[in-house]
Every structure is written in C-alpha cells, then in structure tokens.
Design a protein around this nucleic acid. Structure first.
Lengths: 249, 249
DNA sequence: CGCAAGCTTGAATGCCTTCAACCCCAGTGG
DNA sequence: CCACTGGGGTTGAAGGCATTCAAGCTTGCG
C-alpha cells in the first residue's frame, strides 16, 4: 500500500469511544448513534502525513479520535499560516462543501472517525440535536479563532509562545475534565516550524523565545518535546492574558 | 434621554426588510417569521457609541440591518484587536451565553433588529431551519476569521491594507448581488484607528500605507473616507491573495 | 474663530526576520 | 561497530519593517 493512503483501522463501538460525550455526536440518542455507527469508518494517518490538500475533494467529514491535525493556508510565495489546530473530539470538514479550503495535516499519528459526507449531511438535516451540537462546536471554534486573532495581531513573540503553551495546558486539563493550575506538563504535538506557523513567527524566533522562557524559569524541558510548567499561573502572566484567561460562559 | 442609551426605532415589516433573505431569518417560513416579527425590536446607535462592553450581560441577540459594528478585545495594557466586523445581515450575540465576550461598538450609525435572548433561544430549539441558517452563518464567519488569521500572521502592512480594501469591495458588491471587478468605490466605515485595530497595525502605519497605495495609483481618495479603486484586480494583486481570492464553495 | 478629533508626515528605535553556521540524535548501511 | 546522513533544533550577526514619539495638518462644528 502506498504510504500516502490512509489506513483503515478496526473500529471500536461508539459507546466505548473516548470522545463519545465531547464530539459532534455528544448529544445523540441511541437510535441516532446507531446510524452513525453504521456510517463511520476509522482511518489512521502517521505523523507528517497530509490528510487533504487545499482544494481537494474530500468525501468525508470526521471527528478526531486521537492525535493532532492542523489546517494551514499557504500563499503563492510559500508563506504559511496555521488556521486550525484539531485535537481529540474536534470536527473536521464543512457540511455542504465538497472541497476543503485548507490543507489538513496530521502532526502526530492521527485517528479519524470518518463519515461519508452525503449521509452525514442527510442525518444533519433530520437530526436537530446533531445540528445544534455542531453549531455549539463551531461557535466555540469561532471564539478560539478570535483569541487567536488577538494573539497574532497584538502579542509579542514571548507572549505568543506563553499563550500557546497555556492553551495546550488548558486543553490537556480539559481532556481529564480538570482545570489548568499549578504544576503542569505538556507533550508538544508540534515541531518548532509548526509552532511558528501557528504563531505567525519564524522557527528561529520560536526557538529563541523558548530558550528565554527556560532561562527565566517559566518552563523547563525534558528533551525537545516535553515541557514542564512549574506554575501555570506564572505562564499565563507571561501570555499577556488576564489572570483566568478562560472563556466567559 | 442619556446619550449612551440606544434609541428604540420604529420598525418595518419583516417582508420589506432589506436583509430579509441574507440574515439569520433568511430561510424562515411565514409562520416562523410571524413569531420573529412579534419578538423583534429595532434599536439605533450613533457612530462611536458602545453597544455593550466585554463582560456585560446582553439580554438580546440581533441582526445588523444597516451600518457597521465591531467586536474588539482589549488587553490589560490597552492593546486592542478587532475580532469581528459586523456588516448588514450579520448576526450579533451567542445563543446560550448571557454575557458578551467582546466589546461591541457602532462605528457608523447602526440599526439593529433585536430579539430578546430567551424567546430567540426557544425558537431556535424548535425551528431547525433557524439553527441550520445560524450554523451556516457561523461557518462562514469562521472561514472569514481564518482568512483574517493569515492576514495578521503573515502579511506585510501594505498587503494588509490592500486586503481590507478588497474585502470591503467584495462585501459591497455582494450587497448588490454582484461580484467585485474592475472599477469600484468604497466608503470606509472605519477610522484609521479602527482599521489599525482590524489589521494589527498602528494608525500611523495605516496612514503611511494608504498614502503609498495612493502614490502607486492602486487607489485614489475623495476626502478621507471615500476610496476609488481603478482596478479591483490590481488591488487584489497587492493583497498577496491569489487572483480570485474568493472562498471555495 | 478656535478647538478637538482625525489624520499625515518625519526621525529614531527596536523587535523580529533573514541568512548562516552549527549542534544533536536517530536511523541506516557499509 | 561506527561513519554517514538528514531532519529537527539552536545560536549568532546583520538588516529591515513596523513601531514609537513627536510635530504639524485638515476639517467639521460649537
């Protein structure tokens, strides 16, 4: 099998799914879940693999079950900006649109729970609960994008790095139904270059600022990818956000 | 009446509304429209007025009928980033959230078609068409936010200005169910400072780059606010986007 | 008229980028 | 076994683009 084709993985039952209550299917009842169960296919991608190129047809939408994927936009001269960071339970694809607008890349090994687009759209049309959940998730993503606009538009390189690490801490904590605080540790799912594309910086600047945060005791590292945060609050203080940093409810 | 309280304006019938087929109510049937008709109240704000401060309770959601509003985020030290630009037919507010996350400001005289939040949420819950329309609009806004991320993260000051003007040209054309091309003219709904907040620049840089585009014949101006674009294509060429620049469908 | 808000222009500074060299380390094959 | 290789990462020096600070202009309006 060619390396650039996704593997179809054996699939687990929805009721045992680790993202059962956080993904687009969160509020589905038994009968709706049965329909999704029949329509779904698991696919796996390995770190670095491109899931779809901008402009490609994509005949499925999906939930991220495990791993991390990014959405990126590239200008003609090669400048690249990440515009989406998809973590477990996040939704990939836009119902009603058959071509993807952004290049989708697996930055770690990735497991997607895929639904063929047409059947999924039909189910959407007759399952208000599903539409409502997707709306809720899209609104959350819009809020996240707006935080990101502030980061890109107004924050210094140091604040950008601290913000990204704080975001990863919060997502990590949320996975365990917890709240970020005190001592934390994060495994970076991104290369320095991907971090730079997220933050609108160069990879050299990312590297320098990580070194600076390390020197100042805000973080320390085990290898290149594991980051220990002695105090989440101190990290947030470096991010330029106000104390809680959490979204309003 | 104190200046900072919105005026309640006399309201027109929904069937004669200029945004009838583009706003959140676009796909509503007669009976659904009747409910909205009863629940709606028009409010007007004058240019510069704040509609709601970040963190305020807002007991209504609304459609922009005419005029322009912005959503902005401000850091503790005063750095400000615009995170939303609401033009006619755009939706304001988030169902399910009683406090606003961003400061909402009228940058021109503004007419809002307001719905009390609770009744609107109830209608949403039992009117799938309304939810679907709101989902569609939110997805469009997310796409726009992602274009914006590229702009803030990777474009030069000159490209940023050209991009903003091109966006305004496109929105202007869309109002007339048209497509931007050739000679265009835009009335800037934003001060230089608001443009700077949109673009992640200082107002001085905005001013300098507008002067530069003028000098290069990409635009010319009548007063400070009316911008003539001799060639929309030339403007887009300055924006760094590829030729069509339009979103994929 | 005179003021203030919005805007323009100039000069100096600084942050981040660019270009370049080098390090680290895991995987590979002689 | 170990030299080789290449991807990912770090560090240094120089330069550029946008910011900062400052002054002056334009225009609408009380």
């Amino acid at each position: 099998m060619p390396e650039d084709v996704a593997l179809i993985a054996p699939q687990a039952a929805c009721v045992k799914c680790p993202i059962r209550y956080r993904a687009v299917c969160a509020h589905c009842e038994k009968d709706e879940l049965d329909i999704l169960e029949d329509a779904k296919v698991y696919r796996t991608y390995s770190a670095g693999q491109v899931v779809a190129w901008s402009g490609d047809r994509m005949d499925f939408v999906a939930s991220v079950v495990s791993g991390v994927a990014t959405l990126t936009q590239t200008m003609e001269d090669g400048r690249t900006q990440m515009v989406g960071l998809l973590l477990p339970s996040d939704f990939l694809g836009r119902p009603g649109r058959e071509r993807v607008s952004y290049t989708v890349t697996a930055t770690t090994d990735l497991l997607l729970c895929c639904f063929r687009r047409k059947p999924f759209e039909q189910l959407l049309a007759r399952t208000p609960r599903l539409t409502q959940r997707l709306l809720e998730m899209t609104l959350d993503e819009l809020d996240a994008a707006r935080e990101w606009l502030l980061l890109l538009g107004r924050k210094s390189a140091r604040e950008k790095i601290a913000s990204l690490l704080a975001i990863l801490c919060r997502r990590e904590a949320a996975l365990n139904k917890d709240v970020a605080t005190g001592r934390m540790t994060v495994l970076l799912p991104l290369t320095r270059e991907a971090m730079a594309d997220y933050l609108g910086l160069t990879l050299e600047t990312v590297s320098r600022q990580i070194t600076a945060l390390k020197k100042d005791g805000i973080i320390d590292m085990v290898g290149k990818r594991q980051i220990n945060v002695p105090s989440y609050q101190d990290l947030v203080a470096e991010s330029g956000d106000d104390a809680d940093g959490g979204p309003l409810i």
